[in-house]
Computed example of a mutant assay.
Amino acid sequence: MKAICWILAGFYLLFCCKAEEGLNFPTYDGKDRVIDLNEKNYKQALKKYDMLCLLFHEPVSSDKVSQKQFQMTEMVLELAAQVLEPRSIGFGMVDSKKDAKLAKKLGLLEEGSLYVFKDERLVEFDGELSADVLVEFLLDLLEDPVEIINSKLELQAFDQIDDEIKLIGYFKGEDSEHFKAFEEAAEHFQPYVKFFATFDKGVAKKLGLKMNEVDFYEPFMDEPVHIPDKPYSEEELVDFVREHRRATLRKLRPEDMFETWEDDMEGIHIVAFAEEDDPDGFEFLEILKQVARDNTDNPDLSIVWIDPDDFPLLITYWEKTFKIDLFRPQIGVVNVTDVSSTCPE
């Protein structure tokens, strides 16, 4: 008991000493870290950093609005670069006109997009361009593509993830060729799709997994889908995830909002607005989840759930555009190719 008291006292002293610094949010320090990438310096930049994040942008117009918008975007990158400097993550910009040859060589296709080079992979960032969202995305990408579940507590944490796609497999060990195929498949989707694995027989038993078997969990569903025909190759796992990636009910998240929004059903989205922390919103969301479970085999149904609390800067825009009140749950159909014709109800 005395030992526990001393440990707690040590923690107390540590936190007391650091209390004033504990909430010291970073501000731009004035040092330029974002590189203007060109054919002369891009190889050096790729070698220098473990990951390199590049903004592929159109030439900046001379008008004040365009100049100001570009400066704001540049400041987002500068702040992210400052925060992630100790992690060996570099940042750069590529002009689509001035550096067209370099862009083609690197595989940069869409102006205004952010691309990340990690090892020999190119990952496109499809989220909200803000420093906090971008930093979180890059830190997730820096981690191993597969998270290992070894205990009951870790399994409980795995069970709590219900609003995004996840996969989990049971393998003999890290040297297993089937685990390596699973790990290589995970790299195709990191960090957008979560891959987990266990080497523990007890954990596998609780999950109902047999050796070399993988389960696919659709968001908000009670039961997983057993991926058939084990063991699997990397290509088979990648194909399965791509085929089943569009969930019946999916949440719009800041880190992949554009990817979700662009994945429409022939130009149409069924969109539901509901605050999860609000009693009416929670009740409405539970009904949506049940509708999704009852219709999970319907390939023509996909509902996008938006929690307005996740996008405070868009609330006024959505209310004005869709002519709705987001202080209560809403659902309707959105034509993403012509926002003016949308009609949520």
Rank of each mutant, 00 (worst) to 15 (best):
I287F: 04
D310R: 13
E213T: 08
P86V: 14
V76E: 06
D309A: 11
P344L: 07
L134C: 08
E236Q: 04
H57D: 12
E177D: 02
K194M: 01
K43W: 00
E124R: 14
H178Q: 13
G92S: 07
T337I: 11
L139N: 13
E218S: 15
F195N: 06
F284L: 13
H188Q: 10
W6C: 08
A186D: 02
L155S: 10
R246M: 09
F196R: 03
A19K: 06
L109E: 12
A204Q: 08
F189H: 13
D300I: 11
S61G: 08
N24M: 01
K206T: 11
H178D: 10
E183A: 15
D163F: 10
R242P: 02
F91V: 06
G202W: 02
I270N: 04
F91P: 08
V133E: 08
V65C: 06
K289N: 04
D277H: 00
L109P: 01
E20N: 04
D307F: 05
E21S: 13
L23K: 05
D229S: 11
D163E: 05
A157G: 04
Y317P: 04
I89F: 05
A80Y: 00
E128H: 04
V193L: 04
E243D: 00
T337F: 12
E143D: 09
V271Y: 08
L207K: 05
E259H: 09
T73A: 01
L142T: 10
D278C: 12
S151N: 07
E275L: 04
H57V: 09
D264H: 14
I4S: 05
H244K: 12
